[in-house]
Amino acid sequence: MRPLTEEESTAVFQKLANYIGKNVVHLVDRPDEQYCFRLHRDRVFYVSESAMRLATSVARPNLVSLGTCFGKFSKSGKFKLHITALDYIAQYAKYKVWVKPNGEMPFLYGNHVLKAHLGRITEDTPEHQGVVVYSMSDVPLGFGVTARSTIDTRKLDPTAILVFHQADVGEYLRDEETLF
């Protein structure tokens, strides 16, 4: 477990900013408690300072997880956000997409969001923007990247892909082995 290097921090924050924009500062400046990012076995954890201090007494091979896992660095140094970060991303999300009940299950099986399944979308969402996907009852289901801007979606046919799938909560079941 160690703090992130400068390069790693930029990689993580760039990725986060894709979804929550300037709200990234809220993750670092919290009114309640000091929180920090820590790297442990290629994974990035977001954890309160006090919990982190206590967790230092756990030896490296025995520590499995602390606080919330945000994602992992690939061997080539790229950062990939995991579904476990959804809590924080959903909290500060700038652009949102709601899917209809009949689109919930297809998305949770790892498919892209089609136009037919689209319930609502934040106004003036640009193209290739990170968005959080919600069910109609406002339960966050995952996140992805828009394929078209909000204006362009109107002309599309119903089978066109609107949001590229990146992570969904179904991964807790599908990828339990590789996620942690």
Partner: peptide, 12 residues
Amino acid sequence: HRLGCKNVVVCN
């Protein structure tokens, strides 16, 4: 993680 418990340290 699924249940959103943020105050947990898992060790082995």
